[in-house]
């Protein structure tokens, strides 16, 4: 995973930390949607928090991490308040569903920092961070279109919720960008974990003529790999590098660099260097989003396609290409590709 240097996210603020915010021992609580070993969204966040711990240790700060996993929104608020009361410096709510919990607890515990994933606003001691994954899924879509032999690509998505649909539609838009006239599909399974249904959804897309399937789910992605394997199709993973899970099918993984994002947010909250009231919605311009190629399959990608992937990455980073956040399924089909470059 590429997270060697601090990025634009922290640029300019990293050195501003005041000594008053420094404490020798800090406690951080991590409350993700799922399990910290899910190999996906929740685990990626946990890795980021652990990285923050290691980095802070170098600065002489001892940080301990505790976590409560797989909670309902109501339980998450109980947990968040309880951690705050137990003197935790920072409580990370790594799940969009916990937004109410973060804002409510934030009001009642002004001395604790709350970090909330994918929420509308940062207020006072509550900061939100949003990996804007439509950027990287757009590039994944481009790559998928170039790799498709059948002229069709698909997305299997968990829920029709903002940042998940941004990914799905970003992918479809990218596929059209790579090959105008390509067939793109998306299917919603209303679950993060139903791997069996994800497999059938992928199979349905393959039956309809797709041969590269993007996973916009969490652990259910296992079913997508199984479908790809039985049909000699390709899969594209999201959130974390999953090529070793299914080396023959996972072409590439669309990383949100969630570990980097979480590391930055947690370190910032401990150092007191987060900008007040700033929502950290970060796309590739902010260093969030990269493709981790599967070493076993990267040689099957033509050199000119790899080169264009690099160009696209650069163009999106510099803002030459601007990928829209489309939150309605199917919107990408009507989107005018010419307006991507209008800026």
């Amino acid at each position: 995973m590429t997270m060697t240097m601090p990025t634009a996210l922290l640029a300019g603020t990293a050195m501003l930390c005041t000594t008053t915010a420094w404490a020798k021992d800090v406690k951080v609580a991590f409350i993700p949607c799922g399990q910290i070993n899910d190999g996906s969204w929740s685990e990626a966040g946990y890795i980021g928090v652990k990285t923050a711990k290691d980095n802070l240790a170098k600065a002489g700060i001892t940080m301990t991490i505790d976590s409560s996993e797989s909670l309902s929104p109501s339980q998450a608020e109980v947990a968040a308040r309880d951690y705050a009361k137990r003197g935790y410096q920072t409580v990370v709510l790594h799940c969009g569903t916990f937004a109410d919990a973060a804002y409510n607890a934030g009001k009642d515990f002004p001395n604790t920092n709350f970090l909330i994933a994918v929420a509308p606003k940062s207020v006072k001691n509550v900061w939100t961070y949003t990996p804007a994954m439509q950027d990287i899924s757009f590039i994944a879509g481009y790559l998928a279109a170039k790799m498709s032999k059948t002229g069709g690509v698909g997305v299997v998505a968990s829920f029709n919720f903002s940042n998940i649909t941004w990914q799905a539609e970003g992918f479809r838009l990218g596929a059209r960008y790579g090959k105008p006239g390509i067939k793109t599909f998306s299917t919603y399974i209303n679950s993060f974990d139903d791997a069996g249904k994800a497999k059938e959804a992928a199979q349905a897309e393959i039956d309809a003529g797709a041969d590269v399937i993007y996973s916009a789910t969490d652990q259910a992605s296992r079913g997508i790999y199984a479908a790809a394997e039985t049909n000699d199709a390709l899969a594209i993973a999201s959130y974390s590098d999953q090529s070793q899970l299914s080396p023959k099918t996972v072409l590439t993984s669309a990383l949100a660099n969630i570990p980097l994002l979480l590391d930055t947010m947690v370190e910032g909250s401990v150092n007191g260097s987060l900008t007040p009231d700033k929502p950290y919605a970060v796309g590739m311009a902010g260093g969030i989003g990269a493709l981790a190629m599967n070493p076993a399959l990267v040689k099957t990608i033509p050199a000119d396609v790899l080169a264009t992937v690099q160009t696209l990455t650069a163009d999106i980073k510099t803002g030459k290409l601007k990928i829209p956040a489309l939150s309605e399924p199917g919107k990408s089909e009507q989107y005018d590709l010419a307006t991507l470059k209008a800026h």
């Binding site: 969009g96 569903t97 937004a99 994918v118 949003t130 829920f159 029709n160 919720f161 903002s162 939150s327």
Partner: peptide, 19 residues
């Protein structure tokens, strides 16, 4: 639950939060 999920992501969506 299906109906609630639909409303949350569709007609009554808040914008960014899954609520």
């Amino acid at each position: 639950v299906t109906l609630a999920t639909y409303l949350i992501g569709g007609p009554w969506a808040s914008g960014i939060t899954p609520a």
